[in-house]
Computed example of a mutant assay.
Amino acid sequence: MSTLFSGRGFSGKIKISQKEFFELRDIIYELSGIFLQDNRRFLVENRFATRLSELELKNYTEYIDYLKNHFKGRSEELNMLTELITTNETSFFRDNSQLKIFQNFTLKKFIDAGNESGRREIKIWSAGCSSGEEPYTLAIILHETLKSEIGKWRIKITANDISTNVLKMAEKGLYTKYSLRTTPAPIILKYFKNIGNDVFQINPEVKRLVKFSKINLNIESQVKLIPKSHIVFCRNVIIYFDKKMKIKVLSGFHNNLLDNGHLYVGHSESLHSVTDKFKPRQHAGTITYHKI
């Protein structure tokens, strides 16, 4: 009988009503721009159960009140919210077909232009960098491409995420074998140090190319502080946004990119019918987007 009054189902999991789901969805959207589709209601129940227990809350109405009234803890709770509703599934050298196009087409283009002009500068923005595998992968590719010439270049990789927790992991530069599951063995030997217990530390020469900081893509003033970029990577992020938010974020990327800049999104993501600010270019196995 008590489980019914506490709002729990037969499994002991706290159930969320449609009204509570809509209220929570609106708060998440307001804070992060992430939009939960109607069919994500059960995902909320599955993933938020532990959090409600930690806060000693009886139901989602109490959690919604907590979000609305605890302003000091709102930033910290936003970290928890985003981690619960998104998937930080990543690895080094993920989606290698894209990375090959990045190395052999996009990067080559900017290197050739830099060598010709004498202005050897490459600035990359990794937006939604999670625990750092993507920006460190890009830094490794730059080392592999430029080799001994890398010292002649001014390289800056700006890596951002909305979650403080994953950024702390990224800054440590420590990874398990699982994070390296899609990484060629010679790359692991060259750019990582096994420090024991199957924990691998990223090479300091790679690490120094990347600067991590927190950003919320829904806050325009934060986006404007990102240094202008030649290339933006935002893979498997815009899938969490509705069309309105996608347009806003893509406009921010367009404004950030230098002339002839390139944008990479996830292989399953498309800008078709979302924005006309970028021109798609088809490659074998992937699409790149160019600033118009």
Rank of each mutant, 00 (worst) to 15 (best):
V210G: 03
V210A: 05
V210E: 01
V210D: 01
V210M: 04
V210I: 04
V210Y: 01
K211N: 10
K211P: 00
K211A: 06
K211E: 12
K211V: 12
F212Y: 14
F212L: 08
F212I: 11
F212M: 05
S213G: 05
S213M: 09
K214F: 01
K214R: 15
K214D: 00
K214L: 07
I215D: 00
I215Y: 03
I215W: 00
I215S: 11
N216A: 07
N216F: 14
N216H: 12
N216W: 13
L217A: 02
L217F: 13
L217G: 03
N218I: 09
N218C: 09
E220G: 03
E220Q: 13
E220K: 10
S221V: 14
Q222E: 15
Q222N: 12
Q222D: 14
Q222A: 12
V223L: 11
V223F: 12
V223A: 12
V223N: 08
K224R: 15
K224M: 11
K224V: 08
K224W: 02
K224N: 14
K224Q: 14
L225K: 15
I226G: 01
I226T: 11
I226C: 01
I226N: 02
P227I: 02
P227M: 06
P227C: 06
P227E: 03
K228R: 14
K228E: 09
K228M: 02
K228I: 02
K228G: 02
S229V: 09
S229D: 02
H230M: 08
H230A: 06
H230L: 10
H230V: 08
H230G: 00
I231W: 07
I231M: 09
I231H: 07
V232S: 04
V232G: 03
F233P: 09
C234S: 15
C234H: 05
C234N: 13
C234F: 07
C234Q: 04
C234L: 07
R235E: 10
R235M: 13
R235S: 06
N236D: 12
V237N: 05
V237Y: 06
I238N: 03
I238S: 12
I238Y: 06
I239H: 11
I239V: 13
Y240E: 04
Y240N: 06
Y240M: 04
Y240W: 03
Y240V: 13
Y240K: 03
Y240T: 11
F241K: 13
F241S: 10
F241C: 04
D242Q: 07
D242F: 02
D242C: 10
D242T: 07
K243I: 15
K243W: 06
K243D: 14
K244C: 05
K244E: 15
M245S: 09
M245C: 03
M245Y: 02
K246W: 08
K246N: 05
K246H: 08
K246E: 03
I247N: 04
I247F: 02
I247H: 02
K248G: 00
K248D: 01
K248Y: 09
V249F: 05
V249S: 00
V249G: 00
V249E: 01
V249D: 00
V249H: 01
V249P: 00
V249L: 08
L250E: 02
L250H: 05
L250K: 02
S251Y: 03
S251I: 00
S251Q: 12
S251E: 14
